[in-house]
Nucleic acid binder design. Structure first.
Length: 422
RNA sequence: GGAGAUGUACCCAAGUGGUUGAAGGGUCUGCACUCGAAAUGCAGUAGGUCGGCUCAAACCGGCGCCAGAGUUCAAAUCUCUGCAUCUCCGCCA
C-alpha cells in the first residue's frame, strides 16, 4: 500500500512513476472521496468534542438537582447527527481503502524501464549452459522413464498440473528441501519457520495477494481460509501489527512449505512437466530490514539463494526485472533463472524482491530506532531459496547421462544416500 | 463437536452506566542520594492511529479496555455476533 499522504501531496509524481509499469492511475475518484472524508471527519469530531464536554458536566448537574431533560433532548439530536457522519466516514474510509489497496508499488529508481521479460537486465551469469554429446531429453520424459515421476496417475487422482513423485523421485524432492533448509540455517543464519498452509483473508491482504488477485488463490470451501500461494504470506505476517526494535533487524527467516496456485490465466503455458503446478514445494527466504540497508539486504538475500544453486552445480543467471515485469507489491526484483536444456533457455527458479514499506504498511509492521523515536515501517524482502520442483527438473535435465540415468549432485548425496538414479 | 470460564497498557491487576484524562503494583527510563552500586525518594512509563494548525515541531482535538454491531443523552461496564486463550468431555494423528 502506498502512503496515502503521498497520494494526497504529490499525486502527479505517483501517476508518473506507475506509468513505468504500464499502470494507468486515475486519482480523481480518490481525491474527491478523500476530501469528502476529511470534511465529514472534521465535522464529526467537532460534534463529538461537544458531546464529551457536555457529558462531563451531567453528573454535577444531576447532583445539584437540576432538570437535565432539555439537555438530553439536545444531546439526542447531536448524537443522531454524529451517527450519520460516522457512517459516512466509515463508508468513505472503506471506499478509499479499496482504491489504495489496488494500486501497485512504485518501482525503485534503479529498475530499468521496459514492457515485459524481454526488457529484463542481465546482471550476472554463473556456469555455462550444459552441453550434451547425446540427444538430451526433457525432465518429464526422464522422470517417467526412470519411474520416479507419474503425471498420468496424478491426473487420475486429482487433475492436471499435479505430480506424483515415486521412489528416488520422492527422495530427491525431500533431499533438496533438506539441503536448502540446512544450508540457509547453518551457512547463512536464517531461522527456520514451519508455517500454517492456510491463512485468513487479512494475511493475504497484508502481503498484497488480495484484494486484487483473488482468482489466483485457492479458497477452502466452508471456511474463510486460503491455501498459501507461498510461505511469504504466513512468514511475513508473523510480525503483523508489531513494533520491532532496531537491534532486532534484520530478522531472517527461511521456511519450507507446499505452495498452491490456481494458475488462472496460464492455460496452455508450461503444460508438461514440473514447471507450472497447482501444488509445488518451495523454500522461501524472508527478511525484515531497516530501510537504510534494505537494498544491501536484497543483494545478500539474492546471493543466499544463488548459493544453493552453486552448491548443486546448476548453471544460472540473475536478471533485474524491468518496470513492466515487476510484481504488484515489489519495488525491485531479481529473478534467478536456471538453465533448462529442454527449454533451451534460462527459466525462473527464484524471485528476490524488496517491497520496501509496501507490505509493511498493509500489515502494520514497524520498528523503532530507539526507545524514544517514532515507529517507522520496516522494509520487507523475500525470495525463493529456491523452488524445489523446478530444481528437480533442472537436476534431471542437467545431470542426465547418455544411458538415461541421472547423476545426483555431490551436495545432495548425503541427503539422498545414493549418487545415481537409474 | 459439547459444557463452562476468561480477554483492560510491556507484565500482573482494580474497575456493574456519568468528575476514568482507566486505580494500584511490577518492569523500564530519568533525576536525587552515592566513589559506584544496592536500597530509598521523586518524576515519567498509552503507545499507536486519524485529523486540525504547521516547512516542521510544539500545541489542540477524535478514537482506544480482544474485534464488530446494538441499547443509551452517555458504555471498560448492559445486549448480540465473531475471534483467541484456559479447564473438562467427545473424537482423533
Amino acid at each position: 500500500m502506498l502512503d496515502i499522504k503521498l497520494l494526497r501531496a504529490q499525486p502527479e509524481v505517483v501517476v508518473e512513476q506507475l506509468k513505468r509499469r504500464n499502470f494507468e492511475l486515475d486519482l480523481t475518484e480518490f481525491t474527491k472521496l478523500d476530501a469528502e472524508r476529511r470534511a465529514a471527519l472534521v465535522e464529526a469530531e467537532q460534534l463529538k468534542n461537544q458531546q464529551n464536554t457536555v457529558s462531563k458536566q451531567i453528573p454535577a448537574l444531576k447532583k445539584e438537582g437540576k432538570d437535565v431533560a432539555p439537555i438530553f433532548a439536545e444531546m439526542k439530536e447531536l448524537s443522531d447527527k454524529v451517527k450519520v457522519l460516522d457512517d459516512k466516514v466509515r463508508e468513505l474510509d472503506e471506499a478509499l481503502r479499496q482504491i489504495v489497496l489496488t494500486i501497485p508499488n512504485i518501482p525503485n529508481a534503479e529498475v530499468p524501464d521496459g514492457n515485459d521479460d524481454s526488457d529484463n537486465l542481465e546482471i550476472r551469469k554463473w556456469g555455462e549452459p550444459t552441453k550434451f554429446d547425446f540427444e538430451a531429453k526433457a525432465h518429464w520424459d526422464i522422470g517417467e522413464n526412470l519411474d520416479i515421476l507419474d503425471f498420468g496417475r496424478a491426473a487420475k487422482i486429482t487433475g492436471s498440473r499435479f505430480t506424483v513423485y515415486k521412489g528416488l523421485g520422492a527422495a530427491l524432492e525431500r533431499a533438496i528441501i533438506n539441503y536448502f533448509l540446512t544450508t540457509h540455517t547453518t551457512k547463512s543464519g536464517y531461522t527456520e519457520i514451519f508455517p500454517p498452509y492456510m491463512v485468513h483473508r487479512n494475511s493475504m491482504v497484508g502481503t498484497g495477494q488480495l484484494p486484487k488477485f483473488e482468482e489466483d488463490a485457492f479458497k477452502v470451501a466452508n471456511t474463510e481460509y486460503f491455501l498459501i500461494p507461498t510461505a511469504e504470506v504466513p512468514v511475513t505476517n508473523l510480525h503483523k501489527d508489531e513494533i520491532l526494535s532496531a537491534d532486532q533487524l534484520p530478522i531472517k527467516y527461511c521456511a519450507y512449505s507446499a505452495c498452491f496456485r490456481a494458475e488462472a490465466g496460464s492455460a496452455g503455458r508450461d503444460t508438461r512437466g514440473l514447471i507450472r503446478q497447482h501444488q509445488f514445494n518451495k523454500v522461501e527466504l524472508v527478511k525484515f530490514a531497516n530501510p537504510d540497508t534494505s537494498y544491501d539486504e536484497l543483494e545478500t538475500l539474492t546471493n543466499d539463494a544463488e548459493k544453493v544453486l552453486q552448491g548443486l552445480g546448476l548453471p544460472y543467471r540473475v536478471v533485474r526485472l524491468c518496470s513492466g515485469d515487476l510484481g504488484f507489491s515489489s519495488a525491485m526484483t531479481y529473478d534467478i533463472e536456471v538453465w533448462m536444456p529442454s527449454y533451451g533457455r534460462y527459466v525462473e527458479i527464484s524471485s528476490c524482491s524488496n517491497f520496501e514499506d509496501f507490505q509493511a504498511r498493509r500489515a502494520g509492521i514497524k520498528f523503532k530506532r530507539d526507545t524514544n523515536s517514532k515507529a517507522e515501517f520496516v522494509h520487507t524482502l523475500n525470495g525463493s531459496g529456491v523452488a524445489v520442483g523446478r530444481t528437480v527438473a533442472a537436476i534431471l535435465e542437467n545431470y542426465q547421462q547418455a544411458d538415461g540415468s541421472v547423476k545426483i549432485p555431490e551436495a545432495l548425496v548425503p541427503f539422498m544416500g545414493t549418487d545415481l538414479i537409474k
